[in-house]
């Protein structure tokens, strides 16, 4: 059994609720879609690459982003859809670089497939650009050591897990997820911090992610 270290600072759990804001911007052809991807705010890119994670929690595997879904279903560009779906979001530490990758994938595809520029979506199947407005609330949960942390992981909502794992890393540009950062900085447990940071949360449902996190922390406590 590992010795239980007290954290320098307790981990305070937050939760995040969201609202969808409409932009009034829409695209029905690929070139228009591309120019709007270049133009819209980062909150829009974040929305369309993360919405599925919360709306379709029960589906795994699932279409990982709205861009991939639209080019496949509305334009019939399956190959581009696959390329967009397989962008490794974990590889990017901020929205800016993720957006650049999406733009590059679409531009390369259009260059190699000029006929794709001629396709129109049907009426009512245009791509509507939206954005996520996040509201971050403190929760009553906090952990002073790894054991308390594991107990909290059982109690917090999946929205709280979502906030600390996805939103903190990519949207708030904290480089890694909040859990790994606390484990390294406050508990001095670099090995566990790295192990959690290596987890690809995009291939789990949020409930599975909770289970995976609990299993990792428990294994550390029992080692």
């Amino acid at each position: 059994m590992a010795e239980l270290y007290k954290a320098k600072e307790p981990f305070r759990f937050f939760t995040r609720l969201h609202l969808t804001e409409l932009t009034g911007l829409r695209a029905s052809i690929l070139s228009q879609f591309l120019s709007l991807i270049k133009e819209v705010g980062g909150a829009s890119i974040y929305h369309h690459t993360h919405r599925f994670l919360q709306q379709h929690q029960y589906l795994s595997p699932e279409p990982p982003n709205d861009f991939a879904y639209w080019v496949t279903e509305a334009l019939g560009e399956d190959e581009l859809g696959e390329k967009l779906a397989s962008i490794d979001t974990m590889h990017f530490s901020n929205i800016r670089s993720l957006r650049e990758k999406i733009i590059m994938v679409i531009e390369e595809y259009m260059e190699g497939n000029p006929l794709s520029k001629l396709k129109f979506s049907r009426k009512n199947e245009e791509f509507y650009f939206m954005k996520t407005v996040s509201f971050v609330f403190p929760t009553p949960y906090s952990a002073g050591d790894l054991k308390e942390f594991a107990e909290c992981l059982h109690k917090i909502t999946i929205e709280s897990i979502y906030y600390h794992v996805f939103e903190a890393r990519l949207r708030l540009e904290k480089k890694t997820n909040d859990f790994s950062r606390w484990m390294e900085d406050s508990l001095g447990d670099k090995a566990l911090a790295v192990k959690i940071a290596r987890l690809d949360p995009y291939t789990h449902t949020l409930e599975d992610l909770r289970k995976a996190l609990i299993a990792m922390v428990k294994a550390r406590l029992e080692s």
Binding site: L17, H18, L19, G41, A43, Q54, Q55, H56, Q57, Y58, K131, T132, V133, S134, F135, V136, F137, R171, L172
Partner: peptide, 28 residues
């Protein structure tokens, strides 16, 4: 997850809050 009255209530209340915060990420 998306179409029950509890979600509708939640969004109406977040909408009310959003009127006081223009940002995309709001700490409340």
């Amino acid at each position: 997850n998306n179409f029950l009255i509890t979600r509708h209530l939640k969004e109406y209340m977040l909408l009310f809050l959003s009127l006081y915060y223009p940002q995309d990420v709001v700490y409340v």
